[in-house]
Every structure is written in C-alpha cells, then in structure tokens.
Write a protein that binds this DNA or RNA. Structure first.
Lengths: 296, 296
DNA sequence: GTCGACTCGGGTAATTCGGGTC
DNA sequence: AATGTCCGAATTACCCGAGTCG
C-alpha cells in the first residue's frame, strides 16, 4: 500500500525523466507534499488527475498499482462494451478494471462511464440472464466487480469541500440493486456534492428519518425493481409528507414513473438517467467548478 | 488506548522508515520523551501535529480520542469498538476508515480486524437496531462503509500468485448479507488464496454451476439469515450432489448449523468463525508463505 | 530472573535535492 | 520553450550487533 510516491516512481510510471517531473511539481502542475528533509512525495490521486487533464500516456502503470496496460489510447465507450461484457462474465476483475480505467485515464468522466459503458453492459447481462445465456452467479459477480471499480473511481475524486451541498438517497424495500444508487452517489460526488448512498432495500420510514436528521439539499430514490406498486406509492407519499417540504426529491431507475405516477408535486423530479439527474441537481444547487489551479 | 507510542508504531502508521523517524526525532522535528533506558516514546499529539504540518495523509487533524496505533499487546482492537460504533452510526466514513487502517498499519491482519473489530461492532449495531436504538439506514450505511474499507484492505494485499489455490463462495437465496461472504473472501486472499465471492442471495443451482465450471479447491457458504430452513437444506443437499464430490465445503455464519444439520458428510465443515474457517482452509490446502511483501 | 520482541546507534547503499548545461 | 542528462551534497532506506522493555 503506498499512498505517497517518490518522484522516481512517478517518473518511471508515466515515462518522463525525473527532471521534467520535478519541474512540473515546482510549477504547480502536480501538487506535492514534502518530507522534513525536503524530498517530494506525490499522491496517486494527483498523478491520476494529471494524466487525465493532460491526456498523458501511462507507460508503466504497475508502479502505481494501476492495471497493466492501462492508459493506452482507447476507442469510444460504446466500442468497449463488448470487452467489458466478456471480462465481467468471465469474472476477470483485472480486465474489467483495465477497461474502465483506460477510459477514465483518457479523460472520460464517471458520468460517461456509468451511462455509456457500465449501465448498458449491466443491462445486457441482465437480458442475457433472462434468456438463460448467463448464470445468476455471473450477474452477481459482475455487480461485485463494478462495485469495486466504482469505489476505486471515487477514491480518485477530491474530497467534497466543507461547504459542498449534501445529497442523500437509496433504493426502497425489496429493491436490492445497490449499483444504481451507488452510481448516483459517485456521479454526484464527481460534480462536487457531498453525496451519501444509504444503501438498498430501505424502508421509506427510515429514509425519511435520515432526511429529517441530516437535512440534505437533495434526496434521490433509485427504483429498479417493484414488488408491490401500491405499497411503494403509499410509502413514497408518506415519505414526502414526513420530510421537509422544500427538499427536492429525484426519482430514478427503471420503475421511476411507476412510483411517481401522475404526481404534480413540484418537488418531485424524474431522473430518467444519470445525465438528467445531474441536470436536476444543477438546477437545485449549482456548484461553481473550482478553476483549475493554473491558467495554462 | 496508549498515550505514548514507539518509533516503530509511528513509522508504520505514517509510512516512513524507522531511521527517518528517529532522525526527525533527534533533530527536534518531533519531540519525544525518553525511557530510563534511552528508548524514544512519542506522544500522539506530536504525531498529529507533525502530520498536519506535513499535510501527510492517513491521519486526520482531530486529535481527541483518536484511537491511533495499537499497543502491541492486549485488547486494543476491542477497545476501538466503541469508536468504530460511533463513527459508523454517525456515517463518518473518514473516521471509520481511520480506526480500521490505524490497526492495519500497526500490523494487525485482516483476520483480526474482521473477527475482533468489524464483526463484533456490526453485531452490536444489529442488536441496537433490533431494540430500536439504531435506524435501518444507519445499519445499511454502516455496511456500505465497512464494505468500502474491506475493498480498500484487499487492494493492499498482493495479487494471488498464479499457482494459488482457488476458493469461491457466497450466501444463499434470501440472505442479502454481503459482508460476511466478503470478509471470507478478503481473509482467504490475505492467506494467499485466489478467493472470489460470488455475492449474496444466490440460488444453490447457480452456485453449483459456478463450482462445476471453475473447480475451486474450496467452496464456502455464508448463512446469516434463514427464510425457509427446509428449502435451504434441500438446496444444500442438491448442491452437494451436483458438485465434485472431492470439493470441500465450509459453511459459516450464524445459521451454519441449521443448514448442515447432523450431516456426517466428511467434505462439509462448519466454520464457526473466520479463524476456524481459515484453519479448515489450511487443512485443505496449506499455502507456503511467500516472502512477506516488502513495504518498499 | 528469563525471554522474546523491540529499540538503540551507527554504518552503508540507494534516492533525491538543486542547479547547471546540452 | 521544453526536455533529458550529469553532478556533488543531502536525505532516506536498509542492515546489524548490543542493549532495553514488558
């Protein structure tokens, strides 16, 4: 485990000389820590950020604990779906991680990754499961793998600023699909929110309690699977009644419309996908993007 | 908790060599006490102050009650349970991570962490949930947090060697408790196995398919919650019949005995806890410890 | 008092620093 | 303007026999 890297390691991994790296550090392109003796120490997160911003190739990723081969030039997200599907069904987490991180290092955002790569592929696996081409265990294992990658991606995001608006959400009782709400969390975190997923299969009552206690500026609800639509609607309405009337609620997922119905309640929004959810979030509370440290 | 730390503990917890730490102490960058025999003893406050000045990762500024480090003896894992419970219930992931990682960096293994810190604390949360002191969302959020930490811990483990024996497992239909099977996975991985958790709420039929396809040298089954005991036993017996007769199966979790019953099948073992599971795994396939991963 | 684990101090090899030059 | 290479001084990491801790 190595949180801090030496200039030599970083230089080797991105394929430049130590001098260049040191210059970049001194110019502020890469922020560094210093030991008491004045030696530079670089966080992996900083290296990842630099690679993404500069679209710099990564020649020796293993030095950073990144998957071998990561950082190559890659084609479109859509063209990687096939490879991702294969690695997920084979249970090859290393390959899965490589596919995803390739695109991330190439500058793709978490939003794009989720919406155009991860979600469609998971959807395909779901379809193949229904028609018998994929085993249940493969589907579950794929979800574990994606879960792991999403955690890793989040670890590269900067910590939310102290004045970041808070968002919270989860999926209701009977809906055990954790990835949807996790994707929402990470996408909002990328946008600068202090987002917390409460998990899946949550009774509305406890979500309401959480919302009342923490008073988030946004609450999301992810509904992928419905057991009893009447119960769900009832619970949702009670949730709306027991929480702060000014708190906006975004409902997303495959069954979002079924839950919301024809409700005209202005605080309830439908987030058909992550992009529209993000637009709603921006409308609720725009976050000024911190200007990159250097005007370039 | 101990107020005075040894150089070794401090060096490990901040990721520098003991030599550097000692040099910094002698230079006055870090003030120390001395034992009558001349050994250095460092106050927690000093460590925290130093880390804050250096913007060093892995420890946060807030000092009070910081369960940093571990005595090398006695029940320090046990004494951290309270702090962990508090951070989990508050949803403070940073604090949760710190508690766990401090022990890990002080040399505690994943096994000890799971068995003596994580599992007992989660159990406490479960109890408090039953008696109404804890909300469902707090329990779920705590699980998410622990899940995240376990993924992080696993990422620090060396990759399994190519000839590592494979292990596989999961929890059966209706049991949505993912952490138990995840803990098994990470503990086995720490021991050198190529362990893969298939996830939770898996039909026995698909677990059998996975076992037949991948032919692991060990299969584990984690049973924390039972819906229909007859169905479970039936499924388990069918699982035994359809998989390789030589493949050992370890059943663990709160309801392990209920599933196995009075079975005398020699390939079925009861893993009352992670420690006994590990002993069984060692009996099945002892792994020669490779040279310990050099911390560089 | 025994004993294993830890620490001391000092020596040595490997890195890194900053700067100058190509 | 930017990068790569070279250099002496300083810093850090690793090693080991003797002494200390609990």
């Amino acid at each position: 485990m190595q949180e801090l890297l030496s200039p030599k390691q970083v230089a080797a991994s991105i394929g430049v000389s130590e001098s260049s790296l040191k210059r970049w550090c001194d110019q502020g392109v890469i922020t560094t820590e210093k030991t008491p003796g004045g030696h530079r120490r670089i966080r992996i997160r900083e290296v990842v950020r630099f690679l993404r911003e500069q679209s710099h190739p990564l020649v020796s990723p293993e030095a950073l604990g990144l998957p071998v081969g990561a950082g190559r030039r890659v084609a479109t997200l859509e063209s990687s779906r096939e490879a991702l599907l294969a690695s997920l069904e084979a249970g090859d987490h290393a390959a899965t991680r490589r596919v995803v991180l390739d695109h991330y290092l190439a500058g793709e955002g978490v939003l794009g990754l989720c919406e155009r790569l991860l979600a469609p592929t998971l959807h395909t696996i779901g379809d193949r499961w229904v028609c018998g081409a994929t085993e249940v265990y493969q589907e579950r294992r794929a979800c574990e793998s994606i879960n792991r990658v999403l955690f890793e991606l989040r670890s590269y995001l900067p910590a939310p600023s102290p004045d970041a608006p808070a968002a919270m959400g989860g999926s209701p009782t009977g809906d055990h699909y954790r990835l949807a709400t996790l994707m929402v969390e990470v996408v909002l975190a990328e946008e600068g929110w202090d987002a917390t997923s409460l998990g899946s299969s949550l009774p509305f009552a406890t979500m309401a309690t959480a919302a009342v206690r923490h008073q988030p500026q946004l609450f999301w609800l992810s509904v992928s699977h419905v057991h009893d639509i009447e119960e769900l609607r009832g619970g949702f309405n009670e949730f709306l009644e027991t929480t702060t009337p000014t708190m906006p609620v975004v409902v997303g997922g495959r069954e979002a419309r079924a839950v919301v119905g024809a409700s005209l309640n202005p605080r309830v929004h439908i987030g058909a996908n992550l992009t529209s959810l993000l637009e709603i979030a921006r409308g609720v509370h725009p976050i000024a993007k911190a200007t990159p440290p250097r005007g370039h």
